[in-house]
Design a protein around this nucleic acid. Structure first.
Length: 558
RNA sequence: GCUCCUAUAGUGUAGUCCGGUUAAGCAUUUUGGCUUCUCAAGCCAAAGACUCGGGUUCAAAUCCCGAUGGGAGCACCA
């Protein structure tokens, strides 16, 4: 073993390392560390005296097996194992609030929870967390469902928190009756101040009868803001969430599905605790900002003698320079700095789709981030790398020319060429008519000198006879493929003009990037017109783009 | 201010619970090479990390203490 290690490290080894290896593989020596370490030192120094060739000889003669290449460490696949989980008995959930358009953050929560359900052959529930009528809308509800469908996430059960209003009332009454909750009539500011100062208010001392009658008044008489139900937590707790949090409050707005049927609405903490318990959720993964809520969720369920789910937490996911919150996006839309929530510069699912990111890539990407609680500010690059693998296989290759320059070729003996749509996969061929009049890219034109040969891809070599605004050349029959620069081209007669939109980073160091949307007017092959909208293509030597319409494409990535 | 979470290459992570079998694995990025009628994809190679300071131990990325950086919570939002 000493020999092996020495050989692997250029003929030198260290006794500490050898000791570690022996103790690691043979725990029975651990009690005799002193004795064996002396022995090891001797062996090590004798091995180190040998030259590397002598070591190799020794190995060949006596221990040939250790020259076999080491097997690589196996990378764990997928997510880490769950605690207290049994195959077939896992139920997870994704509870978005329908108060905005779904984005990459939603995707992370949904994918992690659904993957766990899948991993354990369990169930996965989509629960629209709609307990604040003022913020929620059908439009968002629908957008979330569309987004998740696009991601390819399947649910066993779809429900809304508001389906269970009667249960919340029942459980709320139970808490009031058992003195675990009380009606508080303090002003909002007062509650907040008392929380900070860790002081109870006088409402918390009211008896059960008074609380019950006040609950009655909440149903009819009190106005929004005049009374709330609070959980009797611990006003002295270090965890501020435990300082008598609100369980119910009055909201009079019209709810997008149940209308004005209810005016007392449960708070998030209460609703989630109860819902997770009655839905049979075994494992609930929430993003890190809810970490302090774990204690409260458990306290509520304990006081109701209800079953508790196992909770887990993961970090929020954001891309560098791509805002995720409505607070930032909304003003951008109002100022017309971005067009809408599907603007390709945004990290919403709709935008990612428009930009040409594939759902499989998002899934792989999110799985690659793991379940870490450290903040993740991923660069968009890594998503692109995943996406490229999916997109490359089935994007047809087309020629496109930017900053077009004219090139006319004399003595062109052919009138049409056939070009295959993909270099490796069989995706058919297309025929292009040519008449000697081409466009080539301005960038390529710059690099060409008179008297040089270039090759128009798929067509043939051209000897450039005249540089300048309008270039001229001669067709070289059977030209040499190797050693000439190969460039893409478009036939002047059939060239189709499109606009390519290049989305770039929206914020640079917290400042809006005024140049975040670049537009290019380019010529491409007429074949573009025959493609379906939404199809991914690769403009050769430029990058992958998604066809947005007959005259507009969006740049996906290199 | 108080409380909680977090810290591994340029970037994202695995390993940390239960110290040694791995002088830290993977992906991405960058660079070089091969292949190729694309500057794509594919293949090969190189480069590159345990935040800092103490302690425990024969042995610390891993355990303990402290410091520092980053994030979150202290809503009648979720």
């Amino acid at each position: 073993m000493t020999l092996q290690n020495a050989f692997e490290h250029e003929g030198e080894t260290r006794d500490k390392i050898i000791l570690g290896k022996i103790l690691g593989t043979k725990p029975e020596f651990r009690t005799k560390v002193k004795e064996i370490s002396i022995e090891i030192s001797e062996i090590v120094s004798s091995v180190n005296k040998l030259s590397i060739d002598e070591q190799k000889k020794e190995i060949d003669e006596n221990f040939p097996e250790i020259l076999a290449p080491k097997e690589k460490i196996k990378e764990r696949e997928g997510l880490p194992e769950l605690k207290n989980a049994q195959q077939g008995n896992v139920i997870t959930r994704f509870p978005p609030e329908p108060n905005g358009y779904p984005h990459i953050g939603h995707a992370k929560a949904a994918i992690i929870n659904s993957e766990y359900a899948k991993m354990y052959g369990g169930k996965f529930i989509l629960r629209m967390d709609d307990t604040n009528p003022e913020a929620e809308r059908m439009e968002y509800h629908a957008a979330i469902k569309v987004g998740l469908e696009w991601l390819g996430i399947e649910f066993d059960i779809v429900k809304s928190t508001s389906d269970d209003m009667e249960v919340f009332y029942e459980k709320g009454m139970e808490l009031i009756n058992s003195e675990k909750a009380y009606v508080c009539k303090c002003k909002r500011d007062e509650i907040s101040k008392n929380r900070r100062e860790r002081k109870s208010c006088k409402c918390s001392k009211e008896d059960v009868d008074k609380n019950i009658s006040n609950w009655g008044k909440m149903e009819t008489k009190f106005k929004p803001g005049e009374a709330v139900v609070r959980f009797r937590g611990d006003m002295k707790a270090d965890n501020a969430v435990m300082r008598d949090p609100v369980l119910f409050r009055i909201i009079e707005g019209k709810h997008y599905t149940v209308g004005e049927k209810y005016r007392i609405w449960p708070s998030y903490d209460f609703a989630v605790a109860i819902e997770d318990s009655i839905d049979g959720i075994t494992h609930a993964f929430r993003s890190k900002e809810f970490e302090l809520r774990e204690e409260l969720t458990e306290a509520i369920l304990d006081s109701l003698n209800m079953r508790k789910p196992q909770q887990g937490f993961f970090s929020r996911l954001e891309f560098k320079g791509m805002p995720i919150s409505k607070r930032i996006i909304k003003p951008l839309i109002e100022d017309r700095k971005v067009s809408w929530y599907d603007d390709p510069r945004l990290p919403t699912l709709e935008a990612l789709k428009k930009r040409g990111i594939k759902p499989e890539a998002i899934r792989k990407f999110i799985m690659s981030l793991g379940l870490t609680k450290a903040n993740t500010l991923a660069p968009f690059d890594s998503l692109e790398a995943f996406n490229r693998k999916f997109v490359d296989e089935n994007s047809i290759r087309l020629y496109m020319v930017s900053n077009p320059k004219k090139l006319s070729v004399k003595n062109l003996s052919i009138t049409a060429v056939e070009i295959s749509n993909h270099p490796i996969n069989d995706m058919g061929k297309r025929k292009i008519d040519v008449d000697g009049n081409f466009y080539i890219s301005g960038e390529d034109a710059q690099n060409i000198k008179e008297g040089e040969q270039i090759r128009l891809l798929g067509l043939g070599n051209i000897l450039i006879t005249k540089q300048g605004e309008e270039m001229e050349g001669e067709y070289v029959k059977d030209g040499d493929i190797k050693g000439v620069s190969k460039i893409q081209w478009v036939s002047q007669k059939t060239a189709h003009q499109i606009k390519i939109i290049i989305p770039k980073i929206l914020f640079i160091d917290e400042k809006f990037n005024e140049d975040s949307l670049e537009e290019m007017n380019v010529y491409c092959e007429p074949h573009y017109l025959q493609l379906k909208e939404g199809e991914e293509i690769q403009f050769i030597r430029f990058g992958y783009c998604r066809k947005d319409s007959q005259n507009q494409a969006i740049f996906t990535h290199k």
